[in-house]
């Protein structure tokens, strides 16, 4: 039967099915031509290095840095035209003020005070969110409690609690702690909890297949699987708490003479040292950027982005 066709023009199905059933060749195809493909050495280079300029343009930080530079130049030009150092100082005088404040240590002390309070309140908030979530995962009452509380308190801006905090804890850092804990706990709880409940049923069954103990199941399956939302929760919590901290310090941030960065700004305004006010604002932005880029972005890059759990 094969002799009916030239060697290269043979029905494919027959070639793969010698002596096959006639029904299998009912829709035979002819092999008309075969081609050889180019070998690796004769193909164009598969990976070519981009030039330095090209590569720099790929770096977001470089591009964004340029935007900041342009905005700073506009600020400088406008302030120089305005010539009103009291209402709107130039960018350069804000930078000099920043330098002065840093060298004198005044600003660093204020930042230190702020960050210490923040860290304590943040830690309390994280622990509270974790406990609430565990409670919610283990009991129906717990999940009802969590959903009700987050639903209500998420709507309550932290600043709205300031008068009450003042009444309960007086002027000073206990009040600020109270307000920040409130601002961190609810969004963080919401994110962590929705992360846990969103873990796919397949992954849960994989964990149960190995008969893991409840703590092992929590730490080896649930937490890593929910990590994208947990990190989002931590990030949102940080953003909320940082803003709340500054705002509440502006209102009553002083205790035994050492105020935070919000208090620094408030004081400088009272002394009409306006370049220092701007220096304080720049510091707030700088710290915010530093934490987001250095801590959270690195954390994300090393975990969920590396694992393909977030695009």
């Amino acid at each position: 039967m094969l002799s009916e066709y030239p060697a290269t023009k043979r029905p494919c199905s027959e070639a793969g099915n010698p002596g096959g059933d006639p029904a299998d060749t009912a829709c035979a195809l002819w092999l008309n031509n075969e081609y050889t493909v180019a070998e690796a050495g004769r193909l164009p280079e598969l990976q070519v290095h981009l030039s330095l300029v090209e590569r720099l343009r790929q770096v977001t930080a470089v591009r964004k840095g340029c935007v900041v530079l342009i905005l700073a130049l506009i600020w400088q030009a406008y302030a120089m035209l305005l010539e009103n150092e009291l209402m709107f100082p130039t960018f350069s005088s804000a930078l000099f003020a920043l330098y002065d404040a840093l060298v004198q240590g005044e600003l660093l002390r204020a930042v230190g005070t702020s960050l210490r309070v923040l860290a304590a309140a943040y830690a309390v908030g994280v622990v509270a969110a974790g406990l609430l979530t565990v409670l919610a995962l283990t009991s129906r009452f717990g999940s009802d409690l969590l959903e009700t509380c987050t639903g209500m308190f998420n709507l309550l801006p932290a600043i709205a609690l300031l008068p009450l905090a003042l009444l309960w804890f007086g002027l000073g850092y206990p009040s600020i702690m109270f307000v920040i804990v409130h601002s961190v706990t609810w969004p963080m709880t919401l994110n962590i909890y929705s992360g846990f409940t969103g873990v796919s049923n397949t992954l849960r069954m994989v964990g149960r297949n190995y008969a893991l103990s409840p703590p092992a199941f929590l730490f080896k399956i649930l937490i890593p699987a929910a990590l994208p939302q947990i990190l989002t929760g931590l990030k949102v919590g940080w953003a909320f708490s940082w803003r709340t901290l500054i705002a509440s310090e502006l209102v009553f941030g002083v205790s035994s003479g050492s105020g935070g960065i919000g208090w620094f700004i408030y004081e400088k305004k009272n002394q009409l040292d306006i370049p220092f006010v701007f220096a304080g604002l720049i510091t707030i932005i700088a710290i915010g950027l530093l934490v987001e880029n250095l801590i959270f972005n690195v954390l994300e890059a090393k975990t969920i982005r590396k694992w393909g759990m977030q695009s």
Binding site: S200, T202, L203, V206, I221, P224, A225, L227, T303, W307, G308, M309
Partner: peptide
């Protein structure tokens, strides 16, 4: 059946 049965981390 699901492709997501491997632990992505």
């Amino acid at each position: 059946q699901e492709f997501d049965q491997l632990l992505p981390w």
